[in-house]
Amino acid sequence: MLPTIPTFLITITTLFALPATSLLRFSCSQLVVERLDPLVNPGVSGSPHLHQIIGGNAFNISMDPSISPSDKASCTTCTFAEDFSNYWTAVMFFKAKNGTFKRIPIKGNVGFEQSQGGMTVYYSPQTKGAKGTTAFKKGFRMIVGNPTYRTEAQAKQFRQLTYTCLQNANTRSGETLDFPKKPCPAGIMANVRFPTCWDGQNLDSPDHMSHVAYPTTGTFESGGPCPSTHPVQIPQLFYEVIWDTTKFNDKALWPADGSQPFVWSFGDPTGYGNHGDYVFGWKGDALQKAMDANCNINCPQLKTQSITTGNQCSQKQIVNEDLDGWLTELPGGMRVTIK
């Protein structure tokens, strides 16, 4: 079962400054680490860069939007058992002085320490206004962020893609748009927050972004209104991914010039290319029920499963390649670039 509210009260109230505490917070263990991307590179066996994927085991090389993942998946890595969605991000690597790369492992968040990697996922309903929150529909998918971005100005186009240098497991302050410049005692947390306004018509768009938008002012947390072009309020979808960089905190391992040594699997050493992908796959109207009920952490309206059960759901790699040793290049031959 999911942890009770008091376990996370301090963490949650620090993370979300909403007028009411209504949100789903749950663990999704690692499903597979795979060089596939059914949104950007559908049908391609071997996408340009490596991803870490969580959620239902229907994830595949080409996901037909007319078929819900919940209709094909036999298990999910998430603790809400009716969530067969797929969530994915790039993978973080350590670049050694000799130019080789080592994949950084993911560890469980506060309260989810038993999870085998993965992410913490949040869905929060809109708490202001009379319209309520419209849950995502079958076939809905979206992307936030751009892996080609390498500057702060570019990264600011996406309001809430950040990093937290964890001083301890509960650190929730000091977010930056780029990779932390100093060793982080408890690891680096990548924060991926998606837009919260929908055009109400398109379940996807050619760039997987145009059908959604940020509030016209402020952020979701500050209650900013949706633009007229995207009037429908959708849940705030938010990933927290904790990369266990602690084995590389010795500054003697870092570049001689003192610059930070971490790089994304798409060749980004700045951190400005942070991004995330989402394919909706909740069973039936389960997510809408949770949003209507304003569930707070625990949700009696939803079925749950243990983290141990979620850990048992996995997939085999389709693109067979070594990901665990010291690599002479990033998977897929991605080059490290600063422009």
Score class of each variant (00 low, 15 high):
296 N>A: 11
336 V>A: 13
147 P>M: 06
178 D>P: 00
147 P>T: 11
336 V>Y: 09
245 T>E: 01
274 N>F: 03
18 L>H: 06
220 F>M: 04
132 G>N: 10
182 K>R: 13
285 D>N: 12
138 K>I: 12
335 R>T: 15
58 A>P: 05
146 N>R: 08
50 L>N: 03
103 R>E: 01
50 L>V: 09
321 E>Y: 02
166 L>V: 11
107 K>C: 07
267 G>W: 06
175 E>C: 09
231 P>E: 11
95 K>H: 14
83 D>I: 13
98 N>H: 13
246 T>Q: 01
192 V>Y: 06
81 A>C: 06
320 N>M: 14
164 T>K: 08
187 G>K: 04
98 N>M: 10
287 L>W: 04
129 G>H: 09
201 Q>K: 15
61 I>Q: 14
77 T>W: 00
4 T>P: 08
314 S>K: 12
97 K>S: 08
233 Q>N: 15
332 G>T: 08
46 G>C: 02
24 L>Y: 03
215 P>M: 13
20 A>E: 12
142 M>C: 07
314 S>E: 09
295 C>N: 01
227 P>D: 05
43 G>H: 02
174 G>E: 04
41 N>G: 04
199 D>Q: 10
293 A>E: 06
51 H>W: 03
105 P>G: 05
204 D>L: 11
73 A>T: 07
173 S>Q: 15
177 L>E: 10
290 A>I: 09
220 F>D: 01
39 L>G: 03
163 Y>F: 15
92 M>Y: 12
231 P>Y: 12
318 I>Q: 12
245 T>H: 01
258 G>A: 02
97 K>W: 05
286 A>P: 00
140 F>E: 08
30 Q>C: 08
264 W>F: 11
